[in-house]
């Protein structure tokens, strides 16, 4: 594995020897990873490779079997951890559209600050308006999720996560459930976020995102990281034969 430029800064996410087993199934095998502040990491790999499970361990929606995870120097693994508090700092966007359907777009965005952070209504609303503006949905403030397209719903979901002012954002195949013509708007919102300096871990099948936005691409297969490096390196000169095969199956890369 190649040393990246981020190795010298203090990592904002540090994963050490992470293991996850579902019964007999060993899904993650001693995975190590470090992510620098502001870094955008694209996580790719075939389905069943453990990449989504890895992401879900990072905010403990999935309980790691063993190993340590540190976010902003603080360990988030172990029984003594205050999970709700830990999760405030880690935003997550999911594959399935799961805005709160009984609330309007702005209420969705205000929900975290209001309920979890106990922000005042006016303060939460002001921030929510700014965030919806940022994701380009100022005109949809009072609209319920059912009246929004899938792409718009994912953009509100991004605003909802941002409202908690997280230190890290996790994206779990956020465009996989969308119609192809809606993928672009979500990816460009994510690119904008990356440009603003957000630390992002992005599980994705969108190789164009990996190529254009990510600082680093990490390839998972069978529960381990088999290759990682700068996007141009992975996409044009992947050294691992399995990475090459995976990319060629997606009709991506030079093979």
């Amino acid at each position: 594995m190649e040393e990246t430029t981020t190795a010298t800064t203090t990592p904002i996410v540090r994963v050490e020897a992470l293991n996850k087993k579902f019964g007999e199934l060993h899904v993650l095998k001693d995975v190590d990873m470090q992510v620098a502040p502001g870094e955008v990491v694209a996580i790719i790999g075939p389905s069943g490779s453990g990449k989504s499970t890895f992401l879900r361990c990072l905010n403990r929606l999935e309980e790691p079997t063993s190993g340590q995870i540190y976010v902003d120097q603080e360990e988030i693994t172990g029984d003594a951890v205050d999970l709700p508090k830990v999760r405030r700092n880690i935003g997550m966007i999911f594959q399935h559209l799961n805005l709160f359907p009984h609330m309007t777009a702005i209420d969705n965005v205000m929900e975290g600050p209001r309920t979890v952070l106990k922000s005042s209504r006016s303060k939460a609303r002001e921030a929510a308006v700014q965030l919806l503006d940022k994701v380009g949905l100022l005109d949809k403030i009072d609209v319920k999720p059912a009246q929004l397209s899938g792409g718009q719903q994912q953009r509100v979901a991004i605003a909802r996560a941002l409202a908690m002012q997280p230190k890290v954002m996790l994206f779990d195949e956020v465009t996989s459930a969308l119609d192809p013509e809606l993928v672009g708007e979500v990816l460009s919102t994510m690119k904008q976020l990356a440009d603003d300096g957000m630390t992002m871990l992005v599980v994705t099948h969108e190789m164009s995102f990996g190529e254009k936005v990510a600082d680093r691409v990490v390839m998972f297969d069978e529960g381990i990281i088999i290759e990682e490096g700068a996007p141009e390196q992975i996409f044009s000169r992947a050294s691992n034969e399995r990475t090459q095969r995976f990319l060629s199956q997606l009709h991506w890369g030079g093979t």
Binding site: L61, P84, N98, H102, E111, G112, T115, V116, A157
Partner: peptide, 27 residues
């Protein structure tokens, strides 16, 4: 209520009771 609603609530940092009160029961 869809499991995604639970995950979205927890990921925002809600406690179980906040999730019940604000997200699950209203739906």
């Amino acid at each position: 209520i869809n499991r995604g609603q639970t995950e979205a609530s927890l990921a925002l940092g809600m406690t179980s009771s906040q999730m019940m009160r604000r997200i699950i029961i209203p739906q």
